[in-house]
Amino acid sequence: MKITAISSNDKQLFEIARILRERSQSDQVDVLPGLLEKLPRFESGSPDLLLVAQPLLNGDDLDRLETLSAQYPDMAVILACTQQTPDFLLQAMRAGVREVMPMPIDGNALQAAVRRIDDKRSYSTRALGKVLAFISCKGGSGATFLATNLGYALAAAESKKVALFDLNLQFGDASLFVSDQRPAASVASVAQQIHRLDASLLFSSMVQVTPNFHVLAAPDDPTQANDVHPEHVDALLRLARQHYDFVLLDIGRSLDAVSVRALDQADMIFPILQATLPYIRDGKRLLQVFRSLDYRKDKIHLIVNRHSNSGDIRLRDCEQAYGMDMYRTIPNHYEAAAASVNQGVPILQLQRTSPISKALQDLARTLAGDSASESRGWLSRILQRA
């Protein structure tokens, strides 16, 4: 975010700049010494946020701010001043000021105000990302492998911004499938700081697999799973949807309050099974749970992993058992998958010609295409009818 701060007090201006730069290293913070009336024209484009720190403001100052707000409607304004009367606050609001803060400025309050503006700006300027949840019908199904490698495919092959949250909170190891980096933080450590959650905190807590594929790891200590509550999932997904095209969830095997809250918010749920009787039986039980949760049938998309046309149980047998079509099959290529997992390298990077890689690329292409079609929205549909 591009921020410009103006104050006639040089010491105060230095402190404001320090607070703002501490919030996020990705923000561009410019400072202008002087009074509001000395504010120059924004020749190279207005900032996203204008912070005016001036002890006393008069009617001319508010008129000037109202003119600026009209000229630059996308620019948010924060005032820091000693005036805090209801009448002044009402006048400031009418002038287009987003927030009025008392002086001296409190650093935590300023960062919180900037975070609110940044969140609202992100929310209003981009389509919300889609949430895709992967859950095992039975242990060893390959759900983590598919979730992590699909995330890489969406990022590398389709140029999408992708986040993956490892919600297998007790025994998750999703980051190991695609990276050898040691996670700096986890879902649990972010949950412990949920009161200061913003894009900067989230980004800094994630493993950067590629510039546009990030993984938030499960905690190393299984007991820390108790630190993550359903409302934390709400906050994480609300923020991640604003900054990523796709948010992938590795749910794991268990169903509890946290995983159910995540599944509730998912746009698509992918139960992962294999074509064997134990998987089919447990998959049917899982679908019964989904029905009891009132999930729409079109939200559930079954994927058969390690599929082989020569298996004893055919794809048609699976579809008859579930009473629904299989959404996708992922071919069996054990050697390539094992090498990928053992080396912690995405299979598309390690063996691009593997049938697994091709199936994941095809799935990523389909999901990215569906997302692009939805983002065109109501205006495109109207124009198509015209």
Rank of each mutant, 00 (worst) to 15 (best):
Q265C: 06
L263S: 06
I272H: 06
V209C: 13
D30L: 07
I382W: 09
S186V: 04
Q28A: 11
A143L: 03
A266F: 10
P346R: 01
V162D: 01
G311K: 08
P271S: 13
N149D: 03
P219R: 03
L169W: 04
V304D: 04
A321F: 13
H307M: 09
V77K: 07
A147C: 12
R261E: 11
L68C: 04
L379C: 00
P33N: 12
K38E: 13
R238S: 10
D325N: 15
Q54S: 03
M206I: 14
S259V: 03
S159I: 10
E158T: 00
Q343S: 15
A95E: 03
M1P: 01
I16C: 09
R328I: 14
R21K: 14
L146I: 15
L379G: 02
Y334F: 11
M93C: 01
N305L: 08
E231G: 08
L50I: 07
A217Q: 11
L51H: 04
R41M: 03
G107P: 02
R64K: 12
R385P: 02
A113D: 00
L146T: 08
F88C: 07
D245E: 05
I356H: 03
G59W: 00
V97K: 02
M75R: 00
V228I: 12
K284Y: 04
L202G: 08
S141L: 04
D221C: 08
L65E: 02
Q84N: 15
H214V: 11
L56F: 12
Q91H: 08
L360Q: 04
A218V: 07
A191G: 04
A266C: 09
R281D: 06
L150K: 00
E231T: 14
Q224W: 05
L56E: 15
K284R: 14
I303Q: 10
A113H: 05
L49R: 02
V178N: 00
G129Y: 06
L348K: 02
V31L: 05
Y295W: 14
S205G: 10
T366W: 05
D227S: 13
K38Q: 11
L56V: 15
V114S: 06
A337Q: 12
A76D: 12
D256N: 15
M324P: 00
Q170R: 07
L360T: 09
K299A: 15
R23E: 09
V345Y: 04
I6G: 02
A113S: 13
A191D: 01
A336P: 09
M103L: 15
P211F: 12
Q242T: 10
A113Y: 02
L383H: 05
L277F: 08
L164I: 02
Y123W: 00
S189C: 04
P211M: 15
A109F: 02
A225Y: 01
D250Q: 04
M324A: 14
Y152R: 01
L150M: 05
Q349W: 06
F42I: 08
S24P: 06
N108V: 08
A359I: 10
M268D: 12
A257M: 09
W378H: 07
K358D: 03
Q361G: 10
R306M: 14
A143S: 15
Q170L: 06
G344F: 08
